[in-house]
């Protein structure tokens, strides 16, 4: 067997091992490369930054633990920005398995870091089934869809909700999404009817689909994958897990490019030989 054939038939366990090394080593030996902020992330930051104090931001947790490594850092950073600007935050989720992630994020940021008061500065409505239909109803009458919060407290007893009744009372909706129901439904069924500001945070694999909506103005911002989350962490001035993960992502991307180039060099050499 020639060297070319040997490389071409490389045991995939060796490839897996190199990926593992590329991901793990930078976590212990960080490169701390500077993170450049891209326009879609900057746009979202600017929208939140320009909102008047006490405006309402609705964060929809439309992901589960599998997407959390990419999306949870973005959720935390957005919440930090909102509470630092004294905005009110409304949380709900179209994915049942994502509810504890929203609870945990509010506990960490709203209560732990900013000492915000539940029912006055933030409210969590937990899981809302029904996808698109729920969003249509939500824009029409928030109190009708969310009659109780995540803990079973009636919505009318939460002072924050006194002036939050319909879509036009919500300054910005951010769908943290990794699938269906998620950002698609927010764009097609909620934004198409009620307009207003809508943004999304996506896993890296889902982000390219949303550039068309960003370009058309249906989205006011887009956070794509862990890189987008790291950019937002830079903007809010707090290094989090996304920034830490950037070195691993840098090295693993270089590794994948290396393997693709190696595969193509072998392909061309074999083709020439034949």
């Amino acid at each position: 067997m020639s060297i070319l054939e040997r490389i071409s038939n490389l045991d995939r366990r060796i490839i897996f091992l190199t990926v593992a090394i590329a991901v793990i080593v930078p976590l212990f030996l960080p490169l701390r490369l500077p993170i450049e902020v891209t326009p879609p992330v900057q746009q979202l930051y600017d929208v939140i930054d320009s909102m008047p104090a006490r405006s309402v931001v609705l964060i929809s947790i439309d992901y589960d633990p599998s997407g959390a490594p990419e999306l949870q850092p973005a959720t935390l950073s957005i919440m930090r920005h909102c509470f630092a600007k004294d905005l009110r935050v409304l949380v709900l989720g179209l994915w049942a398995p994502g509810v504890p992630l929203g609870v945990s994020a509010l506990e960490e940021v709203a209560v732990g870091e900013f000492g915000k008061e539940y029912g006055v500065d933030f409210v969590n409505f937990g899981y809302k089934p029904g996808g698109a239909v729920t969003l249509v109803n939500l824009g029409r009458d928030v109190h009708d869809v969310c009659r109780q919060d995540h803990n079973g407290t009636p919505v009318d007893s939460l002072s924050m909700m006194d002036d939050v009744r319909a879509a036009n009372d919500i300054g910005l909706v951010i769908s943290m999404s990794m699938g269906i129901p998620g950002s698609d439904q927010w764009i097609w069924y909620y934004h198409a009817r009620y307009r207003g500001n809508l943004a999304t945070a996506q896993t890296a694999i889902g982000a390219p689909k949303y550039y068309q909506y960003l370009q058309s103005g249906q989205l006011v911002g887009l956070i794509g994958g862990m890189k987008g989350a790291a950019e937002y962490e830079r903007l809010v001035g707090r290094r989090g897990l996304a920034t830490v993960g950037m070195d691993s992502q840098s090295i693993s991307h270089l590794l994948i490019i290396g393997f693709v180039l190696l595969g193509n060099i072998i392909y061309w050499l074999e083709k020439r030989k034949k």
Binding site: E36, A204, G224, M246, D247, Q249, S250, H253, I257
Partner: peptide, 10 residues
């Protein structure tokens, strides 16, 4: 892939 990571910018 390079544009999406800090090492690409470097």
């Amino acid at each position: 892939m390079l544009g999406r990571v800090p090492v690409g910018t470097a």
